[in-house]
Design a protein around this nucleic acid. Structure first.
Lengths: 229, 229
DNA sequence: CGCCCATTTGAAAATAATCAATGGAAGTGG
DNA sequence: CCACTTCCATTGATTATTTTCAAATGGGCG
């Protein structure tokens, strides 16, 4: 159901929520934005559930969304975190395959899927843009698979932090999600996530301002850990 | 680089290699096939390498292809196995991100990417078909991520075998790849793969005719193991 | 101010990886 | 056609990592 991964690519077209009046829709993204409407959902609130009719696509403007899947044995898997600029739902078939929930209060643009698909059918440029977004999503999904398959706990955390850092403007990184969220995303337990953070702190690789905000103090060390990607 | 996963969806349109003369190209796939040419590559031979210009898309007609990525520390990750009907390379940007190698002697259709993209630009139906294929790939990539993140060795093997079984016509399953290949695909060592097979054999869940051919004798048990997906 | 929940830390148990040796099948060359 | 070689698979023993179970700490919110 979610279409792009959140932590890897850098599709960060600023969300032009208002129709770009007096400006030609020079690319697919701009054309898309003209058919969207603004939505705000509160912390921990669902955007949609597994099995819901996939009527809409979304783009995150501000905040963070996670996609979850509850496994049969009660474990929870987080498929992706969606941050500002990420698209949600592009890969849905008739129904959403994952539940999407806001991690914090989140602002999104909602696109009626019907309109987008119609636009894509008429405008190859829009279709191309959709394909490019999915391409990115697939590429990052593969990177993450390699990681989940072969990386140790420290390597996974390093990968995670570097991806977040690449999306941040300075060395500070916001972690809106809980340790459990991170664990469910990286295939680790909450405890292992916490222990790994502590270790990195002890080694002088990161500093922690609050639980939800860290700073990278030794980027090279992190890159060394994540290099196997 | 690889575009669709191999083990999950069931895009198995028979490869109409010859131009469908006298038949209208009623769908995107048929239109696609008209611009393709046939290729045969030998066992263990490369189809393309990481970094090669991504000039072509491929569709497997017969045989099996694996996509590999050599990690910095020497470990190898197999991104996907591509079996008959699977597309390769749809998600490439300018260059292939993975190396593709034939597991056994393999027959493929090669499509000049330039032609396909031109076709997609003109024919929304083709573009739609490309999108659908990528959608499938993304969906299965996500399933596999959940698996790699949270499953035990037995659960991974069960998942793997059931996916292969879904693509087979009878209970026999061909395993053209080595145990090492399977391990690199599932994020396990060769030894763990072998031990898990032995355990399943011992428990009467599978039977082994040869190293490269097994039969599922207790599907319910496998599904029980893989249910957490 | 106090409660609640997330985080951190500790100790024990489980799982898979690693190291090592044996067995067996396919392919090569005499 | 057979023996040899080589590679792959299997099995065993040990080690390392992560999970699990459990307890304590701490920050945010009412």
């Amino acid at each position: 159901m979610q279409a792009t991964h959140a932590l890897h690519h850098d599709i960060r077209r600023p969300a032009s929520v208002m129709p770009p009046i007096g400006r030609e829709a020079t690319d697919g993204a701009a054309a898309l934005d003209r058919v969207g409407t603004l939505v705000i959902i509160g912390r921990e609130q669902p955007l949609f559930f597994t099995g819901d009719a996939a009527d809409c696509y979304f783009k995150v403007v501000k905040g963070a969304v996670r996609s979850c899947k509850l496994l049969a044995d009660g474990r929870r898997h987080i498929g992706d975190f969606f941050l500002a600029g990420d698209f949600i739902g592009l890969d849905a078939d008739d129904t959403y395959a994952f539940t999407a929930e806001a991690v914090t209060e989140t602002t999104l643009i909602r696109y009626a899927r019907r309109k987008v698909d119609a636009l894509a059918a008429l405008e190859p440029r829009v279709a191309k843009s959709l394909v490019d977004i999915m391409r990115e999503g697939l590429s990052s999904a593969r990177d993450r698979m390699a990681m989940l398959g072969h990386m140790t706990a420290s390597e996974r955390i390093a990968f995670f932090l570097l991806n977040l850092a690449d999306r941040s403007d300075d060395t500070r990184i916001e972690l809106p999600m809980t340790r459990t969220d991170i664990g469910d995303y990286l295939g680790l337990t909450m405890e292992t996530v916490s222990r790994t953070f502590s270790q990195l702190k002890h080694d002088g690789v990161i500093k922690q301002r609050t639980v939800h905000e860290i700073a990278i103090t030794d980027r090279a060390a992190l890159e060394g850990l994540a290099e196997a990607c």
